[in-house]
């Protein structure tokens, strides 16, 4: 039989593991804030949603939330792609695609939140 080739270590596995855990811990308070503020929005959508990002805490926490969650999400998607996609060049393509989409989305949403924050 053909000798099994062992993939060479890319030397960044531990860093990936560590930052995924750190972002997970950071997301715990952010998720609690998110749920509470979503309930607050749901209490009075028409009155509260347009001025939601005018509050400094909301703008601050939402920018943090989107950055950390998209980072955590792209790390998680990378693991899933590496596990389920067998073609090596496709793996690299999808990882780059996920990173591209995450960074683009984070930039766009942070700009939008800043605009909503400064406009009000």
């Amino acid at each position: 039989m053909k000798k099994i080739e062992i993939a060479p270590s890319t030397k960044n596995g531990f860093h990936h593991w560590l930052v995924q855990r750190i972002s997970a811990v950071a997301l715990i308070p952010l998720i609690i804030w998110l749920v509470l503020s979503l309930i607050e929005i749901a209490l009075d959508p028409e009155g509260y949603l347009p001025v939601f990002f005018a509050y400094p805490l909301n703008a601050f926490m939402s920018i943090l939330f989107f950055s950390v969650s998209l980072y955590h999400g792209s790390l998680g998607m990378r693991v899933i792609i590496e596990d389920y996609v067998t073609n090596k060049s496709k793996v690299h393509f999808y990882i780059m695609l996920v990173n591209f989409v995450s960074i683009t989305t984070a930039t766009a949403v942070i700009l939008a939140i800043l605009k909503l924050h400064l406009i009000n």
Partner: peptide, 9 residues
């Protein structure tokens, strides 16, 4: 999260 972010944009 992607959908919500682009909805905010």
């Amino acid at each position: 999260i992607l959908i919500i972010a682009w909805f905010i944009v």
